[in-house]
């Protein structure tokens, strides 16, 4: 019984269609623009920036946060959030680490060690799968709001890691593990290959499977998806499982780089950075491009590395990036406000 907003009709025209196409890609273009500008800026100002060495080192650093951001974004896409991602990665690493320390015999040969390593990775993935399942049950079946459920499980999973390790760092892993965290394949860091592969995999999951389609619909309007015969509970369960497994991969990457596992890696900022990346990539329930997440991760890394060089020799230079991220985020919000009008709602 209302007069429909006639302005909507504008999108019915052909020009409206072209416009909406451009709009659909404008986020990606905008982000890519920011990335290019930053990249050029640092390449010009810093001699060491555009070198194989620095590019490779970026390739080693960014996948951890990158994979964690994928884990975060798929939950935001369904209208939820997963605060437990980092706790999950640490728990996966701790359990896999304990598995290696406890079970690999001292006199084990090369082949045997590789076998055990495979086992350890399976343990990590299994832990991620189980913790994701638990999140999914709480959210999908018990009906706890995602922010509360994962806040609680974040504490629980960290608690398990602390409990099992007594708060200490688990070390003494076979050196073969470092393949995952510190080696390259054809000059490309292995963690980066993993990140790219998982980005593509996530993209396929979200945009090219029935499951991903349902997850996006659910994010848009959970009541309507329910009434369309979508099993919301099971979709949510799978989304959080997927998130848990991706988190576990992050745990493996951290373990491979540091050759250790502890409850506290990244705890202060990784979760918030993962959310920040989703915000930067404009992931909202029902909509979001995995490519944007990928670019957002690159932006953060370029900023981080760039400022690190820019301020080399300055005390505490590595902290400038945190400041810069915050400022950049605010600037992007404001730019969006002017570009898109008042699309954000508080």
């Amino acid at each position: 019984m209302t007069i429909r907003d006639t302005s909507d009709k504008a999108t019915n025209s052909v020009s409206g269609r072209v416009l909406s196409r451009i709009r659909a890609h404008s986020d990606t273009l905008q982000l890519f623009g920011v990335l290019v500008v930053l990249f050029i800026f640092f390449s010009v100002t810093e001699d060491k920036f555009l070198t194989t060495r620095s590019i490779t080192s970026m390739g080693f650093q960014l996948p951890e946060l990158g994979v964690l951001s994928l884990a975060m974004m798929i939950t935001i896409l369904t209208g939820g959030i997963d605060l437990s991602v980092n706790a999950t990665s640490n728990m996966a690493a701790v359990l896999a680490g304990l598995f290696m320390v406890k079970f690999i015999p001292k006199e084990a040969g090369e082949a045997q060690i590789v076998l055990y390593l495979g086992g350890a990775l399976l343990v990590a993935l299994l832990v991620g799968w189980i913790s994701g399942t638990f999140n999914g049950l709480l959210i999908g079946y018990v009906g706890v709001p995602p922010i509360l459920a994962t806040l609680a499980t974040m504490t629980l999973y960290t608690g398990i890691s602390v409990g099992l390790t007594g708060g200490t760092t688990v070390t003494g892993f076979p050196k073969q593990l470092s393949v995952i965290g510190a080696q390259t394949l054809g000059g490309i860091p292995i963690p980066f290959i993993v990140f790219v592969a998982l980005t593509i995999l996530t993209h396929i999951f979200i945009y090219h499977t029935a499951f991903g389609f349902k997850a996006r619909m659910l994010g848009s309007n959970p009541t309507a998806s329910d009434f369309s015969g979508v099993n919301n509970r099971s979709v949510l369960l799978k989304v959080y499982m997927f998130s848990g497994v991706l988190s576990a991969v992050t745990g493996i990457l951290i373990m491979g780089r540091t050759m250790s596992a502890a409850y506290e890696y990244g705890t202060t900022t990784y979760v918030l950075l993962a959310i920040l990346i989703s915000v930067l990539a404009n992931i909202i329930p029902g909509f979001g491009r995995i490519l944007d997440v990928f670019i957002a991760v690159l932006i953060l890394q370029v900023l981080s590395t760039g400022f690190h060089m820019f301020l080399a020799g300055v005390r505490g230079s590595s902290f400038f990036k945190d400041f810069a991220w915050g400022v950049l985020l605010i600037l992007i919000f404001i730019a969006n406000y002017f570009i898109r009008g008042r699309r954000y709602q508080g």
Binding site: T269, L276, F323, W325, G326, V327, L329, F333, Y337
Partner: peptide
């Protein structure tokens, strides 16, 4: 007209940095 949470996230990392 920004979401409170998004702004606070930016402020969080900005001020610690």
């Amino acid at each position: 007209n920004l979401p409170v949470f998004n702004v606070s996230l930016a402020a969080f990392t900005m001020w610690y940095g």
